[in-house]
Design a binder for these strands. Structure first.
Lengths: 283, 283
DNA sequence: CGCGACCTTGACATCTGTCAACACGAGTGG
DNA sequence: CCACTCGTGTTGACAGATGTCAAGGTCGCG
């Protein structure tokens, strides 16, 4: 079995603490109770609410899609953004609907769920704070490839397609950033395809957790908490397996102290061990 | 098992004869002998060869990434493009190498292969004529996520990152188009993930063939030839299974007249039946 | 108390990856 | 011409991972 030039063993495992999970000041590092009553305004309403909260608009310039963009463009983005508060499990857009707006997470996290005709479901990805989502379908006339659901109470910023085009016109750097994000997603997706095709369930689950820890984790080298609430079912649908298999693996790991879950919040206590499992260390 | 709002049963199965497989005049629709001696110039050489062949430069404006772009930008693209002839199985770029150029297929086809640290390999995607590749890594500082290999003798156009940025600056529409392509790839990749996670091998192989027939096929509604040479191994690595399982399925289908292969070129004789299999029709 | 959402655990069937062997054609060299 | 290797494709046998079925447990809530 020949292994060609392979500079980095596993890009997914290299915690991407840089680039995307920009060191934004993240107050509530420890998991909050995931069930707290979410605020009120629900997506889908027409009225734009520009200039919503100071904190919200302030963090727009920290979003990856605007990094390095012209100040005027950022200002325009800030003034034209529609910002909405979304309750947990609310649908932000639906699979199959035409893409009309570009979205970005101000606070909270969003999961993109794709359902097949046969009822099969997977989680395409999670969008954490500062990340954009729903972009891919906006530019190629396709329909949304999945439902976007608030994984927890969220603040979501969005722009119409026309607004986004104007922003790009004003600062092409925004398009470059979007391409970068899409490229990142694509890379992750290809990694997932490869894992699904060639690795065992346990390894894939471990990889899933490592990826999430890199994307939305806080903590150190060996201990990390994932700030997105995760049910067993979510882990399964992200790793491409069944609820049962995921539950078995997580329960086993929990039993040997490798990780812990509390109120759907997952804490990894031994990253190196998890990495070993992801790489098929113990089989 | 609940099936949420599901406007279109299976986006992958809707042959995308539009958008990407633009009706470019494709002379040799029928498979040529795949083993013919490929021309000479090999990628990686420094000397730019602008204004290479008339046919090549002429087809640049027909490429998806430039559709709708400003004429001046297209002209610039044409004059700055480096065009190379690549022999079959030659590597155009390597997994893990930093992305320095943007590529597009003038003639032929390219396969992007990702190898894992454990030796597991998958085919991320094929790029057929008119399609761009190697773009994703160019804008986010990542390294190439796979090897690009000529699936058959090719002419490949490419631009340096600086050139591409200049082109985008001149006509942001190019960036939009690239985002569109990436979005398409992402959508396909997500579909593959879902299929891998929830469907049987046979269904996935059928889906793989349908996708390829849509991307690089010629023929009618029920009969289609795939213009990319495909070994069993390629089918397997695209569908996320083993050579053996893929061979078994294809041999069985060949036996019942559903399809035929000749010299690594695959012809589907009964698209509806294949679609039925893809949807799990007969189990 | 019943109900729903979520999680755990056991038993079992089966898909499919793995191992092994063989066939065929093309090239290569003696 | 023959022997050999190499790449590709086919087929059979078998074991094991994992999906499926089934049952039950915990917690919060009305």
């Amino acid at each position: 079995m020949f292994v060609p030039a392979q500079p980095e063993c596993c890009p997914a495992c290299a915690l991407r603490v840089g680039a995307f999970a920009l060191a934004q000041p993240f107050a509530g590092a420890m998991p909050q109770t995931g069930t707290q009553a979410g605020p009120l305004v629900v997506a889908g309403a027409d009225p734009s609410v520009p200039g919503h909260g100071e904190a919200a608009t302030a963090s727009i310039h920290a979003m990856h899609m605007f990094s390095g963009a012209a100040p005027a463009a950022i200002e325009a983005a800030r003034s034209t953004a529609r910002i909405e508060r979304i309750a947990r499990d609310t649908r932000i857009f639906a699979q199959g609907s035409p893409a009309r707006r570009a979205f970005a997470v101000v606070t909270g996290s969003v999961r993109i769920v794709q359902s097949g005709a046969d009822g099969g479901q997977i989680i395409c990805c999670f969008a954490a704070r500062g990340e954009s989502f729903g972009i891919a379908a906006l530019f190629n006339g396709e329909r949304q490839s999945g439902d976007a659901l608030a994984a927890q109470p969220c603040e979501i910023a969005s722009w119409s397609q026309a607004q986004l085009l104007a922003l790009i016109e004003a600062s092409p750097r925004i398009a470059i950033n979007l391409i970068g994000s899409l490229g990142q997603c694509l890379l992750e997706s290809h990694n997932r395809v490869r894992e699904l095709a060639t690795q065992r369930c346990e390894q894939r689950i471990a990889h899933t957790l490592l990826r999430l820890a890199g994307q939305a984790g806080c903590g150190g080298e060996s201990h990390r908490a994932i700030s997105i609430p995760l049910r067993r079912r979510d882990v399964a649908e992200t790793a491409g397996t069944t609820l049962h298999t995921a539950s078995r693996a997580l329960a086993a790991w929990e039993k040997c102290g490798l990780l812990a879950t509390r109120e759907q919040h997952l804490m990894i206590h031994d990253m190196p061990a998890l990495t070993r499992i992801a790489h098929g260390g113990d089989n």
